[in-house]
Nucleic acid binder design. Structure first.
Lengths: 163, 163
DNA sequence: ATAGAGTCTGTAGTAACTACAGACTCAAGG
DNA sequence: CCTTGAGTCTGTAGTTACTACAGACTCTAT
């Protein structure tokens, strides 16, 4: 065992690939516990934090939200009958992921077709822009009370943040 | 033609399925022009706004960011050689969408497998939680300088907002 | 005249971070 | 012992694309 008893935040950051500000953020929002501090106020972490943070990062990489992870961690912490409940969380999330894939596939198809028409466009107008202006065979909504933005995809499909 | 000369914001909202606050937001961020106002200060819209907003909503539904739409609109407004440039924007976006699909597929696979193991889990521990803690055949990063969060997907894969 | 709907501005909230500023602390070198 | 540079601290503000108010007007119909 060559692991030291306490790790500084920078070491934890390196070991998990999670940046320092994010670690402090996870503490603020309650995913990581409030740690012991050194005499001068530095956070001190142990291997349990390393494991927990790894868990969090993996779950995030699988697309779980912070809230879902909070639930999962609570279940893991309780260590009683967590399996069924954890499965519910994961299954719901799986459905979300599948819905998202379906939406993105629809986007992909329209984009691909439009870009293709753009590529061999000999006319004066840009087919891409025409498509967006005139609509790709989709009419603007007629019923105002319909809750969904039925252009191509459900209303709640928003692009993920791309910095 | 039964379209009136000016539409109030609420009517524009109904016709486009875009909510009122969002319309004002688009004006603030420069996607919609600053409109004429009635004597009492109400915004007045015409069919050109209706078309433009429809364009914006469709582009958003296809996952274009506000910034990309700004570019697209500028090209459409300029009406000179927009096709090639618009195609570049759309093609880049198409690549993003494809990358996102690939990432989500990877998530889907791991989630599906994990949930399945969870369903027929006869042991005492939850395989889902174990997976997250121990890793799904993926080791925690060793090289600190590697830029990507190589758990399953690139670091910039974040789940889309789900209210 | 008055009720109820529509609209206005401005601000603040959301998710999940990221990016500072300005102050401290720590370890190594001279 | 002092300095230098790296590490860490807090707190606040920025990001994206909206959404949700509060409080004040205005418009339409009865």
């Amino acid at each position: 065992m060559n692991a030291p008893a306490h790790l500084a935040i920078g070491v934890l950051s390196q070991r998990t690939g999670c940046n320092i500000e994010t670690i402090r953020y996870y503490e603020r929002v309650g995913l990581l516990p409030i740690t012991a501090r050194s005499a001068s106020g530095y956070r001190l972490y142990g291997t349990e934090h390393l494991k927990r943070l790894t868990f969090i990062r993996r779950a995030r990489a699988l697309g779980f939200s912070i809230d879902e992870i909070r639930t999962l961690l609570k279940l893991a912490d309780e260590r009683k009958r967590p399996c069924a409940e954890a499965r519910v969380v994961a299954a719901a999330h799986l459905e979300d992921v599948r819905a998202k894939i379906a939406d993105l596939r629809a986007m992909e198809r329209v984009l691909r077709e439009t870009v293709a028409r753009c590529a061999d466009g000999k006319g004066s107008d840009c087919p891409l822009i025409e498509t967006l202006y005139r609509g790709a065979g989709i009419s603007p909504r007629s019923s105002p009370q319909s809750r969904r933005d039925r252009v191509l995809a459900p209303a709640d499909v928003r692009p993920a943040a791309r910095p």
